[in-house]
């Protein structure tokens, strides 16, 4: 795409602005900030990727993956406010998932060990793991709130934290995986996934693009399961105080 072509995409921003002004939505400032930020962030990422692809230095790849995991953990951590050390726990869960995914993909030579493959596929896996972590923590909060009686009944019978929260954990893990599994069922029918679309636009053979998309869909399912289970195991104790009383859970906040 030429720079001129890219500039014309600002027309979409103008349409959004006009709608906002016309309907008095008051979103002009946010639209402007969003436009500038997304353009700068993406352009910067483009340059960074170009640099890393050219150097192929494994340390740079590791650095960018760590950065991705850090940002993902920080964002998902907002869903676990009030839980001790939750950002670290999410980071460990996501990093383990990433290591496992990449280990399998590279170990079985499913993808080439080059930054062109490692970084985008990792980005998608980490992004999905972030969404799953957030869903799990949200669901745990909801479940712990609604199952207080069940958990305290088990505690009063002398249960450990794990025994008392086991069923709540199971239900939350299941619930956090549902969107990914539902996505598997409708992929390609309801929407063409971003990666596949991108590859086709960039000139790749659609069959080749589909093969990679299948890889991503399967990797997502397994990363959702792995992240959710690891995070639930790492964090279940945090719903209790040190002396094994259930935390008073604040109701879920919007946004």
């Amino acid at each position: 795409m030429s720079i001129l072509g890219l500039s014309f995409t600002l027309l979409f921003v103008m349409i959004t602005m006009l709608v906002s002004v016309w309907q008095k939505l008051g979103l002009e400032r946010d639209i402007a900030i969003g436009t500038i930020r997304s353009a700068i962030q993406l352009l910067l990422v483009g340059y960074v990727l170009q640099f890393i692809f050219n150097t192929s230095n494994p340390w740079f790849i590791a650095l960018i993956l760590l950065l991705m995991i850090g940002v993902a953990a920080y964002h998902a951590g907002k869903r676990g406010k009030g839980l001790r050390g939750i950002v670290w726990k999410i980071a460990i869960a996501i990093a383990t998932t990433e290591l496992l995914m990449m280990g399998l993909l590279l170990g079985f030579r499913i993808i080439e060990a080059t930054p062109q493959y490692i970084i985008p596929i990792s980005g998608m896996t980490i992004g999905n793991a972030m969404v799953v972590s957030g869903l799990l923590l949200n669901q745990m909060r909801r479940e712990v709130g609604s199952s207080k009686g069940e958990i305290e009944t088990l505690l009063s019978l002398g249960a450990t934290a794990r025994q008392a929260i086991q069923d709540v954990m199971k239900r939350s893990v299941k619930s956090s995986m549902i969107p990914t599994i539902d996505g598997m069922k409708t992929v390609g029918l309801v929407q063409l996934p971003g990666m596949m679309t991108g590859m086709i636009i960039a000139g790749a053979d659609p069959i080749e693009a589909v093969r990679y998309q299948i890889l991503i869909v399967f990797a997502f399912a397994s990363s959702a399961a792995v992240t959710s289970i690891i995070l639930s195991l790492l964090s279940y104790r945090e719903w209790f105080t040190k002396d094994l009383r259930l935390l008073s859970i604040e109701p879920e906040r919007k946004g």
């Binding site: 009686g149 069940e150 305290e152 009944t153 088990l154 505690l155 009063s156 019978l157 002398g158 249960a159 450990t160 069923d167 002396d243 094994l244 009383r245």
Partner: peptide, 30 residues
């Protein structure tokens, strides 16, 4: 240890909570 304490000092709530499963599973909880 809170678990050991609760096994010795046990609270029975005003609003009884049944654990998931059958009556027998509830009775087998301990």
């Amino acid at each position: 240890d809170p678990k050991a304490w609760r096994m010795k000092v046990c609270y029975v709530a005003q609003q009884p909570v049944m654990l998931q499963g059958s009556v027998e599973q509830n009775l087998r909880a301990v």
